[in-house]
Amino acid sequence: MAFDSFAAFLAMGGHAAYVWPAYGATLLLLIGVVLHLRLERRRLWRELRRRARRERRQAGDANREVSS
């Protein structure tokens, strides 16, 4: 451990104003990228499933017309 106390760790030897924003921005990017990936995939799947349902419905309608 390079620090004597948790307070010293937070203070970063007077460099807190530089160290924490640099790490904060990096973690924000990493987390943001992961969240964006998940959101993007969820949206895409919703759209793909919607399309598949529509196609099935249309196919069903066509079948009914043939049988009647």
Partner: peptide
């Protein structure tokens, strides 16, 4: 550089 050096690990 003291503790500002730690920025290297993300930079």
């Amino acid at each position: 550089q003291g503790n500002s050096f730690r920025i290297i690990y993300v930079h």
